[in-house]
């Protein structure tokens, strides 16, 4: 398998994005390292997508600096950059009749460019991406005819075909049912291990984040509110500080896992209890 370098690290230092008066991103520093899945959580409007877009070079920073393997972003050409960093936007566009294989092949653009030949290594990369994501069974079908979960997997396959060392995924599972959520998260984790890549994934489900990520960063009002090892996220105090709503944690015995949930307001919780 060919990649630009064996592995890449990404470092954002004091990044800020101001649009008019609004501080979408306010003095945020973050680093992504190989073989690690970093979950990015936080309430709506906390600046998660802005951060992902800034890391993907799709949103210019007002101040601060992004470095990839120690070099400033500006020193990479568009294609060099895309060989290292792949980004999946939150709103997935319609694909107007592209087949799955054609869609995944688009991920090879940074390698062959506008005019280069579609080589055997490109073909191999597409094939591998289809295989990893189990999308090879409908490679010939138009992407638009697939279900939401299948389509999401195809897009991840496209990102894999890109063979970047860093993947930035903006809410890839929010619209999926539980089975596809689990499937997709397992896939993400699997990929980070076998490909030795750094992954940033924006999630809304804190329990999902705690179970599948290695590291979690929580944002609030454009700033980083908390970060740490994923299991440590499941703590009522930590979560209450992030979401400003009463939280509780329960544990299961076998296997020993903890889950967090939001407490219901007083009168409702009474009604909800079986004896009430």
């Amino acid at each position: 398998m060919t990649t630009a370098t064996e592995a890449s690290t990404l470092q954002l230092t004091s990044g800020s994005v101001f649009i008019g008066e609004a501080r979408l991103l306010d003095d945020v520093s973050i680093s992504l390292v190989p073989c690690t899945v970093t979950g990015l959580i936080g309430p709506n409007g906390a600046g998660k997508s802005t951060l992902a877009r800034a890391l993907a070079r799709q949103q210019p920073l007002t101040s601060g600096e992004c470095r990839l393997d120690g070099k400033p972003y500006a020193s990479f050409s568009s294609r060099e950059f895309s060989r290292r960093i792949a980004y999946l936007p939150q709103a997935i566009p319609t694909t107007s009749g592209l087949t799955v294989e054609e869609l995944v092949s688009i991920g090879r653009y940074p390698w062959h460019g506008a005019l280069g030949k579609f080589t055997d290594s490109d073909r191999a990369a597409v094939k591998e991406a289809l295989a990893i994501t189990n999308t090879d069974i409908f490679a010939d079908r138009p992407t638009d005819t697939l279900s939401g979960g299948e389509r999401q997997r195809c897009w991840i396959a496209m990102l894999l075909a890109q063979q970047a060392n860093i993947l930035l995924l903006d809410e890839p599972v929010s619209a999926l049912d539980i089975r596809y959520q689990i499937e997709t998260m397992s896939l993400v984790r699997h990929v980070s291990r076998i490909r030795n890549v750094a992954i940033l994934i924006i999630l809304h489900d804190i329990n999902l984040a705690a179970r599948y990520c290695d590291h979690v960063v929580a944002m609030k009002a454009g700033r980083i509110a908390w970060q740490g090892a994923a299991p440590n996220l499941i703590d009522a105090h930590v979560l209450e500080a992030i979401y400003e709503t009463p939280m509780a944690v329960v544990s299961t015995l076998e296997p020993n896992q903890r889950f967090a949930f939001a407490k219901l307001p007083g009168d409702l919780s009474k009604r909800a209890s079986p004896e009430g």
Partner: peptide
């Protein structure tokens, strides 16, 4: 010569930038 762009651009500016199209 520009047909690769024609395949990528319909997917939107965000995706196109993502795969390295200026």
């Amino acid at each position: 010569l520009g047909s690769r762009w024609l395949a990528v651009l319909p997917l939107g500016a965000s995706v196109a930038t993502g795969v390295g199209v200026r």
